[in-house]
Nucleic acid binder design. Sequence first.
DNA 1: TTTGAAAATTCCTGGTT
DNA 2: AACCAGGAATTTTCAAA
Lengths: 167, 167
Amino acid sequence: MSADADLAAAPDPLDPLDAAIVRELALDARATYAEIGKVVALSAPAVKRRVDRLLDRGVIRGFTVRLDPAALGWQTEAFVELFCHGSTSPATMRAAIARYPEVVTASTVTGDVDLVVQVRTSDMRHLERVVERLAAEPFVARTRSTVVLSALVRRPDVPPAPASSPG
Amino acid sequence: MSADADLAAAPDPLDPLDAAIVRELALDARATYAEIGKVVALSAPAVKRRVDRLLDRGVIRGFTVRLDPAALGWQTEAFVELFCHGSTSPATMRAAIARYPEVVTASTVTGDVDLVVQVRTSDMRHLERVVERLAAEPFVARTRSTVVLSALVRRPDVPPAPASSPG
DNA sequence: TTTGAAAATTCCTGGTT
DNA sequence: AACCAGGAATTTTCAAA
């Protein structure tokens, strides 16, 4: 086994039938097993068994609702980049950041910036308050905010498999 | 009516019962109406009527599956910032960017950068190819990539309502 | 192993109060 | 909004490929 096998460990590609089922669930997670079965040419019980197995394996983490952020009052969105003090553990960062309901994603990244935090707020005033609070976190040296003007693509769902040889 | 009323137009806040229903659906979109009803103290038919109404109003856009990107072979993630040539319309950008299956989100933003594109790829090599293709788009002057080291928070679901007076 | 069919249970979804 | 009833969907069991 090569030294970087763990780093590059690629999971088994998804069974074509499982992939098709996942695709249908991505489109409508409340579809009946019979409906999904009609598309993938399987009986309802067979579909259910595969979905249960996907759930057990952790490929499917659960089922959610797709909501309209604007309709719910989240009208502004921004990327807040955090420059952090030298020795802050990711766990510490996570604990602090996770307390903000405005945070959609937070990622440690390569480069000058240490943390990229994606936030959604009701308006500019609200965004300002969130940025101020983030800037006041003990491990944050300074922040840089980038406000989203328009959401060109929003595709939070994961495609069933990486595109083969893109380019 | 003030001049900026349209810009700041805040939608009606969600009925507390609707908010609770949405919260339950966010947790498990395949929960039965009876199960949801038990939590929100409503009968199953009452829950269904409210969900249908939320669907009609566009507050709920649909139901999806929550997947594990890594289990599906999407192991690396990055923010690719695009510096674009002066007069490119968002529509043109959108059309070009939407063709990439690797793109999760794409947003026009304020600041030096014109476009922030969030991509998910199978590995570093794949990411490199995607960045090269993006850089080769006619409207792109140059790119700057930031690779995600670890996903601290991943909360794609929209909370029911903006937190009231945070801070 | 994984499937399809059938049975029992539970759920959905109208109409009514 | 709750209740009720008829029709569907779910889920377990079982037998076959």
